[in-house]
């Protein structure tokens, strides 16, 4: 494992087994670090530059835009609004669901307009995130435990779970739309007559089921990779000591798989918070399936700047959730990924 990097505490990275140099600690070592630092700067420059252009620049632009008024006719009131600096009014309008009023002030947005949907979209987004990630974690764990066992046909199962993952989300959405069609196989199979995309709860469940189908394999594979890191001897020893299956699961599997599990949950949570394709194609955002991402997209053509404010709010929400995960739930992504820190 590579070691921590600092001006003084220097040890060779031994990720591939052999250390990169054998010089004793001292001046030569510092020079080596300086050389490596220069190399690293050159090698990283293209990536950093590219990401700055495609991510950092748009983000800064979006934040600048979010403090500007949208010029043009207000879709809700039909009044002409001048552009210019807006202060926090775009943010205020979203959070308190206010729309411009004829007298220059603001009124509660009429139901049905985009402005009146902020909190319902936020609620929907979190509802989808919590339910899908919870289901995917439980199902994914179960699948991973099965796939970790030795049985004939195991490789077939491992291949099969990749199929939903490989199907593009847009295709998945259309496929489930067809399965959930009124005359579709879903209703026939369970002998029901549900208009799946026609009312709130069936529509929400349609999105959840499709999402769980599509993304559980990813979760299962990540957890499986974590399970495979646990040496078999640990289980043998516990068995000899008389630990029951449940005890082995709770005392060995869970704690040892936790780092991988937390990263998997973090990845899936952040992904679910920006959910767009599936509800957009499956239900069109109707019947309370509008997520924050869908709301932003619907707003773009009614006013860039208000959309920029909403996308910034979305970004902040996702950032906060990621922060909570890393800070309080111990999902250490950076250590888990890439050049892991040598803790041993």
């Amino acid at each position: 494992m590579a070691t921590e990097v600092g001006p003084t505490s220097v040890k060779a990275p031994a990720s591939g087994g052999a250390p990169i140099h054998h010089a004793p600690k001292g001046v030569g070592e510092d020079n080596r670090i300086a050389t490596q630092g220069r190399w690293a700067a050159w090698l990283l420059a293209p990536t950093i530059l590219a990401l700055s252009v495609v991510i950092v620049y748009p983000i800064i632009t979006a934040i600048v835009m979010s403090f500007q008024k949208d010029a043009g006719l207000d879709p809700a009131t039909g009044l002409f609004v001048e552009g210019g600096p807006a202060g926090f009014s775009n943010y205020y309008n979203w959070i308190f669901q206010q729309c411009p009023a004829p007298d220059g002030g603001t009124v509660d947005c009429p139901p049905g307009t985009l402005g009146a949907q902020f909190w319902s979209a936020t609620g929907t987004t979190f509802f989808f995130t919590i339910v899908t990630v919870a289901l995917e974690t439980v199902l994914g764990f179960w699948m991973a435990v099965i796939m970790a066992r030795a049985f004939k046909g195991r490789s077939l199962v491992r291949a099969a779970v990749l199929v939903p993952w490989a199907i593009p989300t847009a295709v998945t959405a259309k496929l489930w739309l067809f399965i959930f069609a009124f005359e579709g196989i879903g209703n026939k199979l369970f002998n029901t007559t549900v208009l799946w995309t026609g009312s709130e709860w069936p529509a929400r469940w349609a999105v959840i089921i499709a999402d769980v189908w599509k993304t559980t394999p990813f979760m299962a594979l990540l957890i499986l990779a974590g399970l495979q890191m646990i040496p078999a001897e640990v289980y043998e020893a516990a068995k000899v000591d008389g630990a029951s299956a449940w005890q082995r699961f709770r005392m060995i599997t869970l704690p040892l798989v936790k780092p991988a599990l937390m990263v998997a949950i973090l990845f899936r949570t952040l992904d679910a918070l920006r959910m767009f394709d599936l509800p957009y194609i499956l239900t069109g955002g109707a019947n309370n399936t509008t997520t924050l991402s869908i709301l932003v997209i619907n707003q773009i053509r009614q006013g860039f700047n208000a959309a920029a404010a909403l996308s910034t709010i979305t970004f902040i929400i996702i950032f906060l959730v990621a922060f909570i995960f890393v800070r309080f739930l111990g999902a250490n992504v950076v250590e888990q990924t890439g050049a892991g820190k040598g803790k041993k």
Binding site: I33, L51, L270, S293, F315, V334
Partner: peptide, 30 residues
């Protein structure tokens, strides 16, 4: 990132990981 020792390695790694978790809607408007 895999091979060299340098300052701010974890900052760079964090930045790249953060970028991959980025919501597409935050880019689309600008």
């Amino acid at each position: 990132l895999a091979r060299l020792n340098f300052k701010f390695k974890y900052l760079v790694l964090g930045f790249i990981l953060g970028a991959s978790m980025f919501p597409g809607v935050a880019l689309i408007t600008p």
